[in-house]
Design a protein around this nucleic acid. Structure first.
Lengths: 136, 136
DNA sequence: GTCTTCACTCTCTTTCAGGTAAGTATAGAT
DNA sequence: ATCTATACTTACCTGAAAGAGAGTGAAGAC
C-alpha cells in the first residue's frame, strides 16, 4: 500500500487559495534544480569571492570533484546564473562570475542562509528532545 | 585526474571575509536537510492549508509515496518544524501542522519561492540561448 | 466472518547521483 | 624528449535514495 498517493479527481479544494499547479510544478522544478547542494555552495563561493577560476572555486567549495564542479558550473551557466569567460591562452584560463540573475538568487537565498544560521541551536535542541522522547 | 580537489594548505585567503568553516558546515548541513524536494513541498502544503491529515498532505503534495511522506514528516517533526497530533481513535487520525519554527522557515523560503516564480522566464530564455549557442 | 478505513511499516528492486581514475590538448620550460 | 600546468572529458563503479507493492492492527459496519 505505498505506491504514490493518488491526487483526488478534481473537486477537492477545501481552501480556495490553491496555486495553479502548472506554476507550482515549474517553481518546483526550478527550485529543485537550483537548490542542490553544490549549486548553493558555488553560489556562495562566487558571491563571497567574486570572479574565480575553476580550480579556485573547487578549493573554496571543499570536497567537490572536478566532475561535479564542471557539471554544476555548466548547469549554472545554462540557467544564466554564472558567466564563463575563456581566455584563449595556454594553459587554459577560465573565469567564472555571477550574472545579475545569479546575484539576485544569492540574495533570495540569503534569507534561508540566515534562517539556518539563526536556528541551528533550536533545531539541535528539537532533535535532542525528539530523540530523548523516543528513547525514554 | 578527478579526485576531490584538495583544499589549499592554510594561508590562501585572498579575501579576508571568509566565514568560519564550522559555521559554514553546520549551515550547509541544516540547509541540506531542510532544502530537499519533499521537505520544501510539504512545507508549502502545510503553509497553504494549515493543519492536515497524513493522506491529505500526500494528495496535495502530488506523487509522493507513503514511505517518503512518512519519512519526510518524521524528519520535520524531529527538526521541530511540524507538530504531530495523534487522536487515539480507530481508524487512526493524525494531524500535522507547522510549528513557529516551521512557519519561520517557510517565510525565509518565501524569498526563494518568489524568486523562482519571478525568474522562470529568464531561466528558460537563458537555457534556450545556451542550447542554441551550443547546437549552432 | 469479512470488509473498510487510516497511518503507517517492511521488503524488494531499481534508479541515479556522485566518486575515482585515467585521458586530452597545447605550449613553454628544462 | 619529457614534464608541467589547466580545464576539462570519458568510462566505470558503488552506495544511497526512493519507488512499488504487500502487510499490519483495531474497531465498527454489514
Amino acid at each position: 500500500m505505498s505506491a504514490p498517493i493518488p491526487r483526488p479527481a478534481e473537486p477537492r479544494e477545501t481552501h480556495p487559495d490553491t496555486v495553479d499547479p502548472r506554476v507550482e510544478a515549474l517553481v518546483n522544478e526550478v527550485i529543485g534544480r537550483v537548490a542542490d547542494k553544490w549549486t548553493m555552495i558555488v553560489l556562495e563561493v562566487l558571491t563571497e569571492h567574486g570572479e574565480l577560476r575553476f580550480t579556485r572555486i573547487g578549493e573554496f567549495a571543499g570536497g567537490i570533484s572536478q566532475k561535479m564542479l564542471t557539471q554544476t558550473l555548466r548547469q549554472m551557466e545554462r540557467d544564466g546564473l554564472v558567466l564563463r569567460t575563456v581566455h584563449p591562452v595556454i594553459p587554459p584560463r577560465v573565469e567564472y562570475r555571477l550574472t545579475d540573475l545569479g546575484l539576485s538568487l544569492a540574495e533570495a537565498f540569503c534569507g534561508v542562509w540566515q534562517w539556518a544560521e539563526a536556528n541551528i541551536a533550536r533545531i539541535e535542541h528539537a532533535r535532542a528532545a525528539f530523540d530523548a522522547a523516543k528513547a525514554g
